[in-house]
Amino acid sequence: MIIFQRRQLYIWIFSILFLNACAINRDTMFGADIIEYTIPLTAKAQEKKIRKDSFNSEVYLEASERLIQFSYAILMDKADRLMYADYYTAREYYSEALDLFLTSREYMLTALSLRHPDFKSKMIDKESISFTTRDIPYLYWLSGAMAGSISASKGDPRYLIDLTNIKWLLKNAIALEPGWDKGALYSAMMSVYLNDTTGDRDSEKKALEYFELADRAAKGSNIGIYVTLAESFAVAKQDKDYFLELINKALSMDVNADKDMKQANLLSKLRAKWLLTRIDDLFYM
């Protein structure tokens, strides 16, 4: 049971942190049932744009952003909530999300290869690449697609090996502009170290350090990092008091403090409220 719940953490830990990096379209959040049926049309439109302009890295970036946001905000959240009530339907949502994440992964690898020849092989070998600040969104969204694949596959080893690539991508982005997009890179790195499988004894310490950096970069307006720390760190430690402290902090925060983060913060608050209803399942003592 504990192993199952630990794998479940991959889903939301990555999800909310990557959602916090973008201003989520209001329709994406509140029109979930409608957009769920329209996303295939959007995807086809994006594919058409790519075919017409296949050497333009920006069209791949735009397509990936939309697919990743939809997968995290709609499909993954639905799957996560349904897992305890309708397992088979939840698995269908995970499978659909995985397909979109893998498509986005290929889009972003293509985009970065257009910008930097032999990018994929250099990433695998962790070679030095002369990135610029214009590359940050590409590095970030590729890491988001990879993280999504891990989440949607429930930690499948075929995708889990991308954790080292995610870390490499984010480190390169942070080196260019540490506080980019109000701490989005720090938030993502916090997630990486919370899920570190390399045996790094300092992973927990690093995760907490990135939490502090993310909080400062967002000027205390990022609700998602508090929810993530509660669900991953506090639950893993079985520290119920700390869990409640973090969740109550998240629920007390003003979603209007930063208009760019409002939609992601609303999602985080909804998640926090849902977690409170599951407290007896999360803690055993």
Rank of each mutant, 00 (worst) to 15 (best):
Y84K: 11
S232C: 13
R158T: 15
C22F: 13
D77L: 11
A272I: 14
R91T: 10
K249D: 02
L100A: 02
L9K: 14
K219A: 09
S232L: 12
D27Q: 03
G199S: 08
L267W: 12
S143M: 08
D99T: 10
R271A: 09
L19Q: 08
D281N: 12
E106N: 05
L185C: 04
L251G: 00
D280W: 14
I16R: 03
M190L: 05
K120I: 07
S187Q: 10
I136N: 09
F30A: 11
I136K: 06
N195C: 12
Y242H: 02
L213S: 06
S252A: 02
K182W: 08
N172P: 01
K182F: 13
E65W: 06
L114R: 01
A147D: 04
A250R: 03
G179C: 09
Y284C: 02
G220Q: 10
I35C: 07
A152M: 11
Y87P: 05
L17E: 11
L185V: 04
W180A: 09
G179R: 12
D239P: 00
D77R: 10
S104K: 05
N265E: 12
A63V: 04
I136D: 15
T42L: 14
Y284V: 14
N248S: 11
Y193R: 03
S95P: 02
S130C: 00
L282Y: 04
L67Q: 09
Y242S: 03
A218R: 02
S187K: 08
L246K: 06
A230Q: 09
N195E: 14
W180M: 09
F70S: 03
L275C: 00
L270Q: 12
F18N: 09
S57C: 04
S15A: 12
D53V: 07
S149R: 04
L229C: 10
T28Q: 08
F283L: 07
Q5N: 09
E96K: 15
A63W: 11
K262R: 14
D241K: 08
I50Q: 06
Y60C: 04
Y37L: 14
Q8Y: 03
Y242F: 08
R51D: 08
R81Q: 15
A147F: 02
L17G: 04
T110S: 03
Q238I: 05
L160M: 06
R51K: 07
Y140Q: 02
S268L: 07
S121A: 10
D181A: 08
Y107K: 06
K219W: 05
S130T: 01
S54W: 14
N20D: 11
L267I: 15
F211T: 03
R134F: 07
G31Y: 12
K205P: 01
S221M: 14
S268N: 04
I16V: 02
Y10K: 01
D118W: 00
A147L: 00
T38N: 14
A184R: 11
R271W: 15
K249Q: 09
K273I: 13
A217Q: 15
D196T: 06
I68P: 01
A90N: 10
A73E: 15
G183Q: 09
I34W: 13
K171N: 14
S151P: 02
T198H: 04
Y72K: 00
P178K: 04
I74R: 10
D125Y: 00
E36W: 11
L213C: 04
D215G: 01
N165S: 06
I74L: 13
T89Y: 11
D99N: 08
Y242R: 11
L9G: 07
K120D: 05
S221R: 08
N195F: 12
N265L: 13
R6N: 06
I11K: 07
L41A: 13
K44V: 14
